[in-house]
Computed example of a mutant assay.
Amino acid sequence: MTRQPAPAPPERTGASDASPSGNITRSWPRASAVLPITPLLRYAVARHAVPPGTARRTGCDACGASVGPHRPWPALGPTARCGGCGARVGAPPASVELAALAALAALLLSRPPAVELVTAAWWLAFALPLLFIDVAVHRLPDRLTLPAAAGTWLLLGLAAVTGAGAAPWLRAIGAGLGLALFFAATTVLLGTRGFGIGDAKLALSAGALLGWYGWSVPVLGLLLALTLSGVVALALLVSRRARLSSHLPFGPYLVLGTLGALLLVW
């Protein structure tokens, strides 16, 4: 008796689309669409990364060549070099571009609802420059923290009106105000040993963005930020790159902790 060959397994149509690698492949072209706006992010960093009380930067520190949206290249490009003298301008080369790509790719892969995605994107458009500014000069300027808070509150209000209801929006506002008051209280009680007022103003938006998803989520974001800052501070102390009296910026860790908490709840 002749044995019949086993039938071939059926083809898996659309398997690549359903796989995680397929999602990543489709999301990266969308994430790369953020690259045209990175000169604006770099411009915000270059303009505001100046010591307190100093006029905002308008050109290259070395040669005075004008730097701005009207002349973005190459100073506001990935090379971050002045076209006149070749001196570095603003954030390190390619750092802003990589940070923007990573943030947007995370948003696209996690796929939150549309209005929440727009809200998070708005917040990140201000939070990413603030991260680099705080690292460079230990300040979080009002010109970026306050629009971040106003836009976040308004967009979450739009999400409330279009179906989510008033409860999550009121909770978000309460969480933003509560987190900001916590940071401000440490400044009043501890002085330079506490958090800065700039951190409190950034918390208005970060707390609202997290509070939209529940009261425990801002606590999670704060714990992530404190843990990350503690690990980095310990590493700097062990490597003798910082002392116990050193002041370390907290804004970058608040941004990273907020984004981490969002990715855990989406």
Rank of each mutant, 00 (worst) to 15 (best):
W215H: 04
T162S: 13
S205V: 05
H247E: 15
V232Q: 10
A103Q: 01
A148D: 09
G83R: 02
G251E: 05
L236A: 11
P69F: 06
Y43L: 10
V118S: 08
V188E: 11
A208V: 00
L234Y: 03
L140Y: 12
L181M: 14
G68S: 07
A120M: 08
C85W: 00
R171C: 07
W73A: 15
G214I: 01
L181C: 12
S245F: 04
W153Y: 06
T145F: 03
V137C: 06
F183N: 03
A167V: 11
L210G: 01
L130K: 03
A65M: 01
V232C: 10
F126V: 04
C60V: 03
P147H: 09
F195T: 02
H138G: 01
Y253M: 07
L131E: 09
V89D: 07
T58H: 11
S216T: 06
L236Q: 05
T187R: 13
L104G: 10
A167S: 13
R240Q: 15
T38Y: 10
A200H: 03
L107V: 10
G198R: 10
T119W: 04
L179S: 10
V137M: 02
R71D: 13
P29W: 05
P20I: 01
V255C: 02
L144W: 11
L189Q: 06
A120F: 12
L101G: 12
A87P: 07
